[in-house]
Design a protein around this nucleic acid. Sequence first.
DNA 1: CGGAATGTTGACGCTACTCAAGTCCCGTGG
DNA 2: CCACGGGACTTGAGTAGCGTCAACATTCCG
Lengths: 239, 239
Amino acid sequence: MCDKCSAQNGGLFSSLGMKHMTRLVNSRVPHAYQPGQHLYFQGNPALAVYCIHQGKIKLTRLVSGGDEHVMGTRGAGDVIGYRAVLAGRHYRVSAEPLEPTIACAIPRETFLELLGDNAEFTFALLVRVCSDTLRAEEQIMTRALERVRTRLARFLLQGVPAAQRGSREIAVVSLQLSREEIAQLIDTTPETLSRTLHALAERGVLAPDRHLIRVLDLPALERIARLEPPSDAHNPPYR
Amino acid sequence: MCDKCSAQNGGLFSSLGMKHMTRLVNSRVPHAYQPGQHLYFQGNPALAVYCIHQGKIKLTRLVSGGDEHVMGTRGAGDVIGYRAVLAGRHYRVSAEPLEPTIACAIPRETFLELLGDNAEFTFALLVRVCSDTLRAEEQIMTRALERVRTRLARFLLQGVPAAQRGSREIAVVSLQLSREEIAQLIDTTPETLSRTLHALAERGVLAPDRHLIRVLDLPALERIARLEPPSDAHNPPYR
DNA sequence: CGGAATGTTGACGCTACTCAAGTCCCGTGG
DNA sequence: CCACGGGACTTGAGTAGCGTCAACATTCCG
């Protein structure tokens, strides 16, 4: 199973030799997580790094005032929690599965040993961290600066099979998430989500139907997702 | 001069031995930059890492629509541009001095050589990256989620001598920045900035006077900067 | 079929942006 | 020395976007 994880997504662990790989495999703790069953909470001591084998993880952060903001999502092949392990003593975000997920916990100890023992691996991780965080920062900026419409479009496009992107076919996105959960993922409220869906339906871009959303005008959706100006009061009317 | 930089701010380069330090010093290119004279632009090939000796640097990112957003500021002792050097081929943000600044350019080549040659340094950088980026992400979230009032308070507090923090003395913050520039730094417009200053003046917190702002009620300003709820429609009236 | 959970719609308020019209400051030239 | 002009700053009016609360509609299931 580690073979698959190593191969995926650039293979963070692919620079490990036989010896280190064995050590990793011996001390990792694989586990299946159900939605709602957190891998870890913000504030918990950072005892392990998690390698996601399968599934989708939501990373959230509590803000003063009690509610939480989604920092991003991670999926198969991603490794999460390593910054907390390396930088400090506690996790800075909470990690919660959105769907049944299989992940391996790699104990802090083991992880640090591997680093101390293998300069090549350390360098690989360093490069990985740099590109990971640059991407993450862009995501955060996006999330914070773009409007709900744009975020929604982007979110829906994630659900469109890559093959269909750019075509004018009618795509069908099936979501097994509630409106509440979708709203959380694009950082808005169910009410606003509902209104935005409605607005796009009126424009003939979507045909929402409970947990099945037909995309009638894929190019239009892509246009909204991509280049919609982030903020400009002088825009075509919203609804 | 490198001694000072090494000592500051955790000393990224302090784990370098004599030999490597010499190599660093020999290949670095010190230079004085004036405000407006960018160290590098977003999109430029990442040819060097910059170590800030003195001054203040503004990091900005262009967004679709033409305007730019400030990602944060960096000061003496900080090292910038290393993620672009390690991760990719071009800078992801632009770096522009806010005041006369002295910085050393460390050529990409040299930087990578040092890493390849010194596992300890690589590990130190790794740890540094992790904590840097966690902090940066918090900054970005803060910037995006908090209201102008809060961001302004935070900004002003940066200008209050550390010694006075927490006291009830009247502090004087002198800014050599125009309203326009301040507005940019806290990511708003000059108009809104002006109104916000006025509102705080009416509350008796500040007494703004062109480039000199007296803080009459430091504790109040700190309260605003810290725990003001990020968003809640049911708040005490704004002005 | 009834009731809880989920989703939608309406009404309203708040923050902060844009445009536009002052007002103030300051250096320059008469 | 003072009037004047241009930039910086402020103030006012109007609006977009989105959040909250509350009422209504729909779905899900026992």
